[in-house]
Design a protein around this nucleic acid. Structure first.
Lengths: 215, 215
DNA sequence: CGTTTTATGTAATCGATGATTACTTTACAT
DNA sequence: ATGTAAAGTAATCATCGATTACATAAAACG
């Protein structure tokens, strides 16, 4: 045990270690205070080493943001329970969205703190212009869109979501619900605003009630 | 003109100059890139001088945030036109809120980028827990609350807004509309999401339509 | 198996920033 | 006028992001 590789010259998985470390820091203290140097120091590697894997600090926190995106998308997916009505699923997705913002406010804030140019975010969590439209995608917005479509068809008798007018209506309804959920989530994550579970549910139900009411 | 006070030792209004400078920078380039030193340099004063007026950088950008708050509140106030119906005013406030986020995205982002501890924000723009309740306040949320109350009374036949149940309903409706407007504004300011004026109006009208529909 | 090439780290360094301290100058009150 | 408090300067510290030249391990290849 004399030369027991105290620290191998090559870390082996520095990139992953950096992202993991950054993710932990962001969750606990927010992305603003994250420092490449400190992360490298704590991992036990020289500051410059990090820049072999990320050209800039923002690129690294961008990787964290993308991971947060996937975490959110996964939770939304888990909220869609097979056998549930479309209305239940819409509500579930909304509550999951808000729940994520409440449980992980720092990650939520990071996701919407544009240092990550929305384009680079890949399968981003927010409605980037328009979802690929058609394919059942796994982005957060895509999941909401699928479920709202189901809701409009199942419970509002809306048949055509493919025609120009039908598509517009679907898009408008998705935008609306998204705005409600995102508004609540944002207020919870970024301000002193806070409501109990019953109130949140009531707000989402108000949003759901507004669907189909308008031409 | 030989000793024509090239630069008086005392600036005279450094504090104001700093805030003004910071405000301009934030509007143009965002608060993240604002630097105390650069501001002092451009104003023509030593770096340490700024710290006579603000203990920390965040305190200075906090002052900018408070100013942005007042700007937003002023625009919301201007949106309430005398003689307009309550419904028109609610819509006008919502559109003004969204319009501000679109016209001044950097200020909007600053207002909701919690470096400013919500408490220190004074008459903050977001619903800090609960508005002082009663007095017609000039905060953004207070203005919405007043107008929504008017709407519920004028057009929905709601009489009691003072009883426990009536107050709860009013609060819920305010929360709802606030969430819709804030959600739209946030998406516009912090993501690639963008809709034209007609769509925005339609979304707000959907929100307005949901009012009074529920118990 | 030996050599070369490429990926990955290190060390040293640059410029800039936030913040603090000791000292100086101005303005104002008495 | 004079002395005190407000408002500036200069110098300094620790930290940070980023770059460069160099060293080493790992992998590719003959």
């Amino acid at each position: 045990m004399t030369t027991d590789t105290p620290r191998p010259y090559h870390h082996g998985a520095l990139e992953e270690a950096l992202v993991e470390h950054a993710l932990a820091h962001v969750r606990a203290a927010g992305f603003e205070s994250f420092s490449v140097r400190q992360a490298a120091r704590e991992i036990g590697v020289s500051p410059g080493a990090a820049y072999r894997h990320f050209r800039t600090r923002e690129e690294l926190v961008g990787a964290v943001a993308r991971r947060a995106d996937r975490m959110l998308a996964a939770e939304l997916a888990a909220a869609r329970r097979p056998g549930a009505s479309a209305a239940e699923d819409v509500l579930g997705i909304g509550l999951a969205y808000i729940g994520f913002a409440r449980a992980e406010p720092q990650l939520f804030k990071l996701m919407f703190a544009s240092p990550l140019d929305a384009a680079a975010a890949g399968s981003c969590g927010e409605p980037c212009g328009e979802a690929p439209a058609g394919a059942t995608d796994e982005t957060a917005f895509g999941q909401l869109q699928d479920t709202v479509r189901r809701f409009l068809i199942e419970e509002k008798g809306l048949v055509e979501t493919s025609g120009a007018e039908g598509a517009a209506r679907l898009a408008r309804h998705c935008d609306f619900l998204w705005a409600v959920a995102h508004g609540i989530a944002s207020l919870e994550a970024m301000t002193g605003w806070r409501r109990d579970a019953a109130d949140l549910r009531a707000l989402l139900e108000m949003g759901l009630g507004a669907l189909g009411a308008q031409g």
